[in-house]
Each structure stands twice: as C-alpha cells, then as structure tokens.
C-alpha cells in the first residue's frame, strides 16, 4: 500500500478525482446551461481586481463596460474555439498545457516529498557516491623557481638535507607566499594553489619521505606527505543538511522523469515514420 501511495500516477489520478469532484459539485445545475457565460460576483471581483492592479485606481463605468466586453469577447471566442476543436494540435496550446502539467508534477514533489530522517538515511545509503569527501592530504612542500642557478643540484642537496632531518632553509620558507605546511587540505583547495598536475600526482607519492621535484605553475617542489585521507564517505550526521539538499534535487528530477514515464506508458508510442533513424526508434520500444 505504501508503495502505491508513492506512485506519482496515483497522485495524478487522485488529483484528477478531486478536481473533477469539485467541478461536479459546484457546477451540478449548470449542465443545462453549459453554453451560458456567467459573470457572478466572484468572477466580477476577479476581473475588477485585475483591472485595478494594472491601473492602480478604480475604473469608471465606461471602463467597467470595456473590461466586461473584453471578457465576453474572449469567452465567446474561447468557447466557440473549443467547440470547433481549434485547441487540438495548436502548438502554443500544446506547449502551455504540457508546461502546466509539468508544473503540477513539480508541485507534487514539494507536497509529498517532505523527507523524514529515514528517507534521508535511505537516500544517503543508496547514493553514497554523492557524499564522498574529496581526498585530503597533509603535506609539506619546498619550492624552487625554474630559473634558479644550479637548480637540479640544489634540489638534490636540499632533499638529502631534509631527509636527514634538517629544517626547511630560511630562504624557502613561505616562498612566493605559499605555506610550507598543509594540514588535511582537500584536493580542491590544493588545486586552487598548485594547479592541476601537482594535485593529481599527490596520491601516487610515497608517504613520510621527501620526494620530488614535482612541477607546478610556480616552479619545482620537494614534497613530504605525512597523511593521505583518500575519498572517505562523509558521516550522515555531519552532512545531513547537505543530504537533504541533494535529496530534494534528485527527487525533483526523479519525479519529473517518473511522471513522464508513467504517462508515456499510458500513451503507447508508435514511431511509424521510416525516416527516423533506427537506433532512435529502438530507444522508445520497451
């Protein structure tokens, strides 16, 4: 039962029933007068309010006559057009109606998909790849500029010294303003400072030893990685608001597609034109 309740099509039918029922109840006696155009108090107030919104004042009698005229004109032509089936296969009518229907499905989503913690938990468990934390690295780096004298030998000497436990040379501390020590830094923020290549090779470097040179946009780096925290999945509790955001986004897309597919089932599709490429044709056959 619960599953049925979640079916968008069921909601559609239910809504249809409600709307139909409402019209049935309110328009019971008017069947005989189907053709008449009624401007009752409600309709009049509505027309009046539209007029006032546009002109920001009360209309005089002439103006009242004008908007009633306009309304009647529209209704008469509208009804006659419906009677003559002019709405059928009209591109603009089609587009408008289908948009209305899509809007209804979006509204539906907002109405029925207020998620419980269980929903969120289930969604989280099912879509863990959405909640992978980017890899994070704790590392030190020492920078050499490409145009330094004796670059190669300088780097080798410094690497040996660092691996023997010596401090980072004073002249290379915070060189070019770039910090030497990076703690638990996410790949995205490393990318912002060091660029693409440097970030991408970190994962392949050994830990607890000075290695390099690794090039970046600034020059050559010696790098010492002390810890790699590779792509762990964030804990549900810590990212619940984010899970909820993703849940809303995903369910809205799902709902749109689901409604479309359900309705598609209702309307068998027959692609008889022989000019449609066959691969495309196949994709519409279940």
């Amino acid at each position: 039962m619960k599953k049925i309740l979640k079916e968008p099509l069921v909601h559609f039918l239910f809504l249809g029933f409600l709307i139909f029922g409402y019209y049935y109840l309110t328009n019971k006696d008017s069947n005989a007068e189907e053709n008449s155009i009624v401007i009752d108090n409600t309709e009049y107030d509505y027309l009046l309010s539209l007029w006032k919104k546009q002109w920001q004042r009360d209309p005089n009698e002439q103006e009242i006559k004008a908007f009633i005229d306009q309304y009647l004109r529209q209704e008469v032509f509208y009804k006659e057009a419906l009677a003559m089936n002019l709405d059928h296969n009209d591109l603009i009518v089609k587009r408008r109606l289908s948009q209305k229907m899509e809007a209804v499905s979006n509204d539906l989503n907002a109405i029925i998909k207020s998620p419980t913690d269980d929903d969120l938990n289930a969604f989280y468990n099912k879509n863990k790849d959405l909640f992978i934390l980017p890899p994070a690295y704790s590392f030190k780096q020492v920078l050499f500029l490409n145009d330094e004298d004796n670059l190669e030998s300088e780097m080798e000497t410094t690497k040996t010294q660092l691996n023997n436990g010596q401090d980072i040379p004073k002249a290379r501390q915070t060189k070019l303003s770039i910090p030497n020590t990076w703690n638990k830094s996410e790949a995205t923020s490393i990318y912002k400072t060091f660029g693409d290549y440097f970030t991408s090779v970190l994962d392949s470097l050994p830990i607890n030893t000075w290695v390099g040179p690794i090039p970046s946009g600034f020059g050559q780096h010696l790098v010492y990685i002390s810890k790699k925290e590779v792509s762990e999945i964030a804990k549900f509790e810590t990212i619940k608001p984010y899970v909820e955001k993703e849940y809303q986004y995903q369910t809205e897309l799902d709902m749109q597609n689901k409604v479309f597919e359900d309705l598609l089932d209702k309307y068998p599709v027959k692609l008889t034109a022989d000019k449609i490429p066959s691969d495309i044709k196949k994709s519409y056959q279940n």
Partner: peptide, 16 residues
C-alpha cells in the same frame, strides 16, 4: 493513509 490525504488536500487548497 488519512493524514497523508489530508495533507495533500490542504496543500492543494493552499497552492490554489
């Protein structure tokens, strides 16, 4: 089932 329906109906009215 009932509370859900009520929710839908009232929200619909609100939306309208």
């Amino acid at each position: 089932m009932r509370p859900l329906l009520l929710t839908i109906t009232s929200l619909l009215l609100f939306a309208g």
